[in-house]
Simulated assay, not measured.
Amino acid sequence: MAGSTLPRRALGRKLRDLRTGAGKSQLAAGLSIDTSKQTIGRLEDGQSVRISTPNVNALLDFYRADEDSRTEVIGLLQEVKAAKGDPSGGWWRAYADVVNSHFDHFMNLEQACNRLVSFQLTLLPGLLQAPTYRRWLVETNDPAMSAVDVERRLELTARRQHRLTEDTGFSLDVMLSESALRHQVGGRAVMAEQLQHLVEVGSLPNVSIRVIPFGVGGHPGLVVQSFTLFEFPPLSASRMTEPPVVFVEGFTGSLFLEDDDVIDRHRAVVADLRQVALSEADTRRLVREIAEEYAA
């Protein structure tokens, strides 16, 4: 994470939320610490600015931030200075004790992006998972997890999925290997339910689901492996485009990739995968056929 922009992004979003929640303008915020509204805008956009801890504390006083928000902001500021750590926060933080340590970063990006592109080789992404499918994954990953915490994990997934129906500015573009439909996660009944859910979600106007069938043979996704690409709306202050991020998850760790060359390579893979993937209509047809096989 050395040199990463992720901590600055998280800090900027939190300060923007506090300012708008307090009903203050960027101009007023700048005047409160003897700086310009442009500096406040760059700070909120996650750009590098010179700002001291006393200045941040003064902003928090101006915004009448509560103690929890103050603690979070100061912690994020320290992580920005260290250019490492696990900096982010939001409603999902209530579930921090039942998720992986990288999940704060992931959720911060998922909630801020306006477009999410995902390629998955073996499992469906969380935004598409039906409850019984998700339950099997949670219980298999951590058999010792209490029943209460399992339910909290399911609740977290359900809350994440609200973006699909409640946020008209958000779009989801998913490409799946056919193997993600064929692996019998949780058994045939669970998969029959999951694939029916996939058809329903895929009918939403802001969701695109396309399957890469076995028949196409080798394709770049087999080498690149599963990944998620986050793309963001223009920055509020400068209207510049916020750099995208690629997320790659492993069994014991994860990577957040921001290098321009890495982003370009993943975008090229997305373009190649689209060339061999079924259309959305043909995908729905295939998903229904496999669901019927499971239900038989």
Score class of each variant (00 low, 15 high):
P54N: 08
T252M: 12
E139R: 11
P125W: 02
L124D: 06
L137S: 01
D17S: 15
F247I: 00
D149C: 04
K14G: 15
L137D: 02
V49R: 00
Q194M: 11
Q225S: 08
A65V: 01
D149Q: 11
D86M: 14
A192N: 00
G253H: 13
P213V: 12
R152N: 03
A83Q: 15
Q196K: 07
Q161G: 09
A281G: 03
F106T: 04
V117C: 12
R182H: 05
G85E: 15
Q194R: 11
A180N: 09
R210H: 09
Q78P: 01
H266K: 02
A237S: 15
T35H: 01
T140I: 06
L59G: 14
N206L: 02
V98A: 09
F62H: 12
S254A: 15
A94M: 03
G21I: 08
M175E: 02
Q275L: 05
A96W: 05
D86K: 11
I40G: 10
I290P: 09
Q47E: 14
R239I: 01
E67N: 12
D167G: 07
Q111F: 13
V276D: 00
D149F: 04
R182G: 03
H219S: 02
E200H: 06
R19Y: 12
T20G: 11
R42Y: 05
G218H: 15
D282W: 05
R9L: 13
F103Q: 14
E242R: 11
S4E: 13
T140K: 13
S4H: 08
D61K: 01
T165D: 09
L181G: 03
G46K: 00
K37D: 15
S36A: 09
S226M: 10
K24P: 10
S118E: 15
W136N: 06
P234G: 09
R267G: 02
W92E: 09
E44I: 01
R285N: 02
Y63Q: 10
H162T: 13
E231C: 08
A291E: 11
F106K: 13
M1V: 12
L127T: 10
D97P: 07
P205A: 14
A189W: 09
